[in-house]
Amino acid sequence: MSRQDALVSADWAEQNLDAPNTVFVEVDEDTTAYDGGHIPGAVKLDWKTELQDPVRRDFVDKAGFEKLLSSKGIANDDTVILYGGNNNWFAAYAYWYFKLYGHQAVKLLDGGRKKWELDGRKLDTEVPQRPATQFTAQEQDSSIRAFRDEVVNAIGTKNLVDVRSPDEFSGKLLAPAHLPQEQAQRGGHIPSALNVPWSKAANEDGTFKSDDELRKLYSEQGLDSSRPTIAYCRIGERSSHTWFALHELLGETDVKNYDGSWTEYGSLVGVPVETGDGKS
């Protein structure tokens, strides 16, 4: 993978809104953003109600994903351009999720909704009607998704990258500073994890930093690129952003996203937890 395969610029997007076999998809935490105005022609995906199983804590299964994309009018030969708010957190999560189910023709709009809005580009409230398709998914690609046992076994052996803010990493906060702090689990981080907040990979306008800047960042923070890497955050969306930077932009080969993340790990009985800044 490389930047050209994985990212499109806002300029490119604006010139390709009507390109054949190209579907723009907005993915948000707060889906009212889409309703108030979206990139013309884009369809909406709700990361919570559509991508999560409604009962168990897991993703919708293969058949469920096929049904979802078919109903959105997305076909196997379509290139999907994902974008969203929150610096593309949920768009990056959806990107990883599309790859998990084997849809390779997916790209992220660099800067997401923020850059699009700050540039003053056109937003539309018209909801496109796309005819249903027969989308077929692959079995989940387990090479990019980490589960808890693998994470516990990775302590001290693989790179664990905690991409939350320093106050979440140290255990002072349990959620990002713009969300209520209602969780009941323990605060802290997985022992041996590096703290490289996702935001260090992004510019102020939400675009990704250059490959050179990203390489410098992760090597300065102590990431050993000869070892496999597992990224995590609180619920797996910010770590998708870092997974994207490492696996899709820098081309690191063995990088997994741990979507259980801190809300799972910090609630496990008996696992080691470290507090503080991890540097002492």
């Binding site: 929150n86 610096n87 500073a177 713009h178 935001s199 260090k200």
Partner: peptide, 8 residues
Amino acid sequence: GEFTAEVV
């Protein structure tokens, strides 16, 4: 000066 959170 490190980023911590963002809202609209």
